[in-house]
Design a protein around this nucleic acid. Structure first.
Lengths: 218, 218
DNA sequence: ACAAAAGTGTTAAGAATACACCCATGT
DNA sequence: ACATGGGTGTATTCTTAACACTTTTGT
């Protein structure tokens, strides 16, 4: 009789908030690693695609459903010995982006919480490895896709967009070169609105020219 | 009681032979799609990593084991309704490269055979989609990794290397620019051997400077 | 001597980088 | 009036692309 491996699904939900790149974590209630932070995840069941499983799990653990995400792609499938108390498990991971302006939904079932990527708490399982993998992928995609679209609200200033790039790439960019490149790609178009938010010159607001996100996952 | 989904594993084994990019297919013996060509694949079992499963399946279906491959990476995990007669299945796919000079091992269990990428037979399941995905990935990796190393024999001429690039990218490249770029990356070094193979000037043989293949999978 | 593939450099255009000052606002 | 972040242009280097003739061999 055929006995398949345990299949789990884990989600990496990012957002850009307050100039920082943030990741959604939950605090585990069950053993192993009870009380430790972890990626929201759970078991996939027969008759369900892994994406459907991801959806149910995110709703249960973080009060968030996939339709609220601006972007979702499969990240990688990790199979590691000792991930699961019941033995070897295969985990399909998904990488999602929550748009900045969206309501920050979260039931408190497992105290879902966004953490700045720069200061993550200790993590359960091999989740730190998975997160590093996701960030490297995100950095790579930033250069050859318009994935930035997924993070930004519909109207945004170029300094805000630059802040997104900087928090993902984890380095400062030259303001003039950044603006020149963004404009050269014609990724964005001007609006006639301004954003006033301090005792300094207001920023012009832009919107993206095409809202579709390139869907090449490499 | 928890019932996991069916888990399958499929392999995409490429090689570069006779100036063409080739892919390993087997002819299915069982239903569904009996008699149709397909990627070598099968079920993953409890207590086995997907990579171990890939190994046993390749041995059984094509008389080839993973250690004979020059390169292996995970490609993607497809879950599609109707892939499996027993219902919904999740398939983890691996992408492998067989070095040119390697013995072309193959038991005839399921008549494993290499096909030119340019003229593939009709394929079972959604395997055509998976293959297209793999080729796109391979094309992308060619530009930012030294994955070409995996295809070439230890000693090779630059025209042979160019032929590999051309068969993967499916377009002609300029000879002078190609050689300049390869040399600029210092990917290769000259040997003092020559390859004579026709009534024309012999080609100088080269070897790769570092045999390690970059292992960034993006 | 000729056919056939190997080998070789230069120029032009475009992309990426470095860099410093003026502008519009709130207090 | 001043502090704060928003906004703008040019020069240089590096990268990419286009392009044609000579060399060495086997027959």
């Amino acid at each position: 009789m055929y006995r398949p491996p345990i299949l789990t699904v884990d989600g990496l939900i990012f957002r850009h908030n307050d100039g920082k790149l943030e990741l959604l974590l939950i605090k585990r209630k069950a053993e192993p690693f009870a009380g430790t932070y972890a990626l929201p995840g759970g078991y996939g069941s027969h008759g369900q695609t892994t994406q459907q499983a991801m959806d149910t799990i995110l709703i249960r653990k973080a009060g968030l459903n996939l339709k609220q995400l601006e972007y979702l792609e499969q990240l990688y499938t990790f199979d590691m010995i000792g991930r699961d108390p019941r033995g070897h498990a295969v985990s399909v991971t998904y990488f999602g982006i929550l748009k900045n302006a969206k309501p920050k939904v979260s039931s408190t079932t497992e105290s879902p919480q966004f953490f700045d990527i720069q200061s993550l708490p200790p993590l359960a399982f091999d989740h730190k490895t998975i997160i590093n993998y996701a960030i490297t992928r995100l950095q790579a995609k930033l250069s050859y896709t318009n994935i930035a679209v997924a993070f930004m609200p519909t109207h945004f200033s170029l300094p805000q967009l630059q802040s997104l790039y900087e928090s993902i790439l984890d380095r400062k960019l030259d303001k003039r070169n950044f603006r020149k490149q963004i404009k050269a790609q014609d990724l964005v178009k001007e609006t006639d609105e301004l954003l006033r938010e301090g005792r300094h010159r207001p920023a012009r607001l832009y919107q993206f020219t095409n809202k579709r996100i390139d869907t090449l996952h490499f």
